[in-house]
Design a protein around this nucleic acid. Structure first.
Lengths: 364, 364
DNA sequence: CCTCGTCGCTAAACTGATTTAGCAAAGCAT
DNA sequence: ATGCTTTGCTAAATCAGTTTAGCGACGAGG
């Protein structure tokens, strides 16, 4: 692999010039006074030899490696990681960079290893990513270089990229309101721990706020809010059973994530309630299951790919250092309808949804 | 980041020895005649200075980078990728290596970019991975070095790592047989394309063979085999509706993967059939949804993590070049029971499953 | 004709490691 | 005392680039 590759010296020799000249031409150095003809000859020689610079040699001198480290607590192994990595990968490729991936798994020793591996390889920058949107502590050792936090914030003053969970909360609430739901909107997935401890989650509080504020703006309060120890299907299931035992039946359920919603579907199915005719369900994340459920689950999508992309852009381009809240678009499927017994607001065919602006999930 | 790191020269100076001596000591070179005291001094100096070698400089000389490229068609962005990457990451870390990740997305230009990036960085080896278990074509440019195929085979003579789909097929069939299912076992997910074209899938045919052979060994033939254009929940759903319209009702359904099984659950739920009391369901993959379904889906798990690990081991250790079929263990949950109207074979508590050897999913 | 500046280019230093070739001193045999 | 080997260590080359310093030729101005 890579045996007998042409070196810069080979190119220079073939072009009849010095290594210096060849280097300058190939690097497009300004202000050099090399003739147009010299340029031609170098380019031709490089082309003919299929010359590719040796990155090790180059970075020995320049301390640049065209490599970005992607360090995550555990993200690389999660189903959510895909988008994050893919976006970063794409953006990196566009900038002729490559991604070095490591995982700390929340283990101090592993983190130490990752840091050293990164430092040893003199990466040009570090993307420090978290699986769950949260606040984390960045190891001081890497603070010397450029670092971008992905799906995370930190007490350190560092650029970060987060999904706009609060905006998504508003979008979700407004979507239900637009359909005519008002006083019978239930909320599943309240969780004190997640809401209070930013080291665990930033999403819980933000989503809750977005929902509450949007409802309040319409003069509405949630009918019930059910707490869940975790955001897994089983908890959505039991929460729904609890909910259905309550005297007042909800017309719509907002779930704090899609896995909860899956549990809601299961519970509703068991008691013979139909989505969305009897109850609407709406949620967050756009987990793959959202598309697989019947009926398809309407949900505010985590923009993982754009987030990964953005992180690389912040790291490498640096220019765009505005707010890095990435909007979460609402993926409209079939789980939301007007409340039962309501005449849906008239909507002539082909005129689009009644609250089109809401569906765009604008960042705030 | 990594400013003013101590160099080998610094260590040598502090130890009062030459760079040569320091280098040899730190690399644990045999046959050097450096005194025990010299060793001590070098180690002490390196320790005191927090010396870490500059990898660029080292690999310029040695052409080794302690870096492995993980090239995939699209695997890095899939939910299935997690385990593959995590296993590789772990095994790489144990061997003091790091992973460089690229994705070709099946695009020739991207693949070209990935190859060049890899060659430029002089990685020590390449893991070429596929999302779906299949046969693929390895770009000749990387054949000069060491390459291991992960979740894929190739016409090129290269070591590969595959899940033991055929063994899993047998395990699955035998599990149903052990429960007393015989002549009413239906199969959902036949697919001519997948079964015939190894470039699309190697799993379909292997699983089918495993199932058929195990059933045949018990003198049983599948009751019905339903074809599906894809292996998605909706296809499992419609396949089940079709199945239920047939005169003979199945006692158990084997699905070619978990997403199909999800569709089966949906269809069965709609018509009011209970799993496993009315019908048993069993499947392949151990997709996250398998655990979320109610009842939990019994399924032969794709051993992604072990596969990723194995790939690195083959690449770096090389010694173990035996068959790299990684067994797929059966994840026993609650979706399989004895057929309705059957007295379950007596099984005293605490004695383990009736066919314990089957449950271990031995590779074959 | 001399000096100075610009043009077009190059030699050599430098990056930080590994590795080859070999040197000085000590030990040993003759 | 002399020659040979072994011991313990080092100078210098090398990897493949980038970068600094500067050289020779030429033209213009005085």
């Amino acid at each position: 692999m890579g045996r007998n590759r042409a070196t810069l010296a080979d190119v220079a020799r073939r072009a009849g010039l010095s290594k210096t000249a060849a280097s300058m031409v190939l690097n497009g150095r300004e202000g050099t006074r090399l003739s147009a003809e010299a340029h031609q000859r170098v380019f031709a020689a490089a082309e003919e030899l299929g010359y590719r610079p040796n990155i090790a040699a180059r970075s020995l001198r320049t301390r640049k490696t065209a490599t970005i480290a992607f360090v995550s607590d555990i993200v690389a192994t999660t189903r959510f990681a895909g988008g994050l990595i893919r976006g970063a990968l794409d953006a990196a490729r566009e900038r002729d960079h490559v991604l070095l991936i490591t995982e700390t798994q929340g283990d101090a020793a592993f983190e130490q290893y990752a840091i050293e591996a990164i430092l040893d390889r003199q990466v040009d920058g570090v993307i420090y990513a978290a699986m769950a949107t949260r606040r984390l502590t960045v190891p001081p050792a890497i603070l010397g270089g450029s670092v971008v936090l992905l799906n995370a914030t930190s007490s350190t003053r560092l650029p970060w990229v987060l999904p706009d969970d609060q905006g998504a909360g508003a979008t979700v609430a407004e979507t239900l309101l637009a359909q005519g739901h008002r006083d019978r909107i239930a909320l599943i997935g309240r969780n004190r721990q997640k809401e209070r401890d930013p080291e665990i989650s930033l999403a819980a509080e933000a989503r809750l706020h977005g929902i509450r504020d949007a409802l309040a703006a319409a003069g509405v309060r949630p009918l019930t809010e059910i707490f869940c120890p975790e955001w897994l299907p089983e908890h959505g299931y039991t929460a729904t059973r609890t909910l259905l035992d309550l005297p007042a039946a909800p017309s719509a359920i907002i779930c704090m994530n899609d896995r909860l919603a899956f549990g809601v579907y299961q519970a509703l199915g068991e008691v013979g309630l139909t989505i969305p005719d009897d109850i609407s369900v709406i949620s967050f994340d756009d987990d793959p299951i959202a598309a697989w459920l019947r009926p398809g689950l309407t949900t505010a999508a985590l923009p993982h790919e754009q987030m990964g992309r953005k992180a690389v852009e912040l790291l490498l381009d640096g220019d765009d250092d505005g707010p890095s809240l990435v909007p979460m678009l609402l993926r409209r499927r079939q789980s939301v309808a007007a409340p039962a017994g309501t005449v849906p607001s008239p909507r002539p065919p082909g005129e689009g949804p009644p609250a089109a602006d809401v569906s765009s999930g604008v960042a705030r």
